[in-house]
Amino acid sequence: MKLNVLLKENLGNMVKKFEEPADKRIYITIDRNNLLKCAEIIFKNLDARYVIASGIHNENNFEMLYHFSFDKDGVIVSLRVYLDKEKPEVESLVSLIPGIEYIERETWEFFGIKFLNNPNLKHFLLPEDWPEGDYPVRKK
């Protein structure tokens, strides 16, 4: 079965928007509350490889992209989640993917996005005494 069909079938009505802007690149927008469920389906059931997550600061909101790779098809699937501008919070995926701990810590200190249930949310790349509330990669 083609991967895009498979994804649509498995994720069902959790998909808010399904984009394929280029060959072998799929962007799926989902709701923030469904993140853990969707990630589990993609990572566990469909056996994708975790690549990375990236935070983005937009004008009106924050955005988290979780990139997964399907190596047999050579496709990158990115889960897109929009977060509040005032209080950016999202569920942590550490329980699912142990390796994601570091990027969540990094995103937290760069953007101020809080990852609920990440047990180790402390400074990783920046010094311990970095001023609180100063998030260097946010847009000014």
């Binding site: 975790y50 690549v51 990375i52 990236s54 992209l65 390796g99 701990e101 570091y102 990027i103």
Partner: peptide
């Protein structure tokens, strides 16, 4: 406006 870079060591070192 956003450039995210993931180097291989970022996932290799935590192993």
């Amino acid at each position: 406006i956003r450039h995210k870079i993931r180097a291989p060591s970022y996932v290799n070192v935590p192993t």
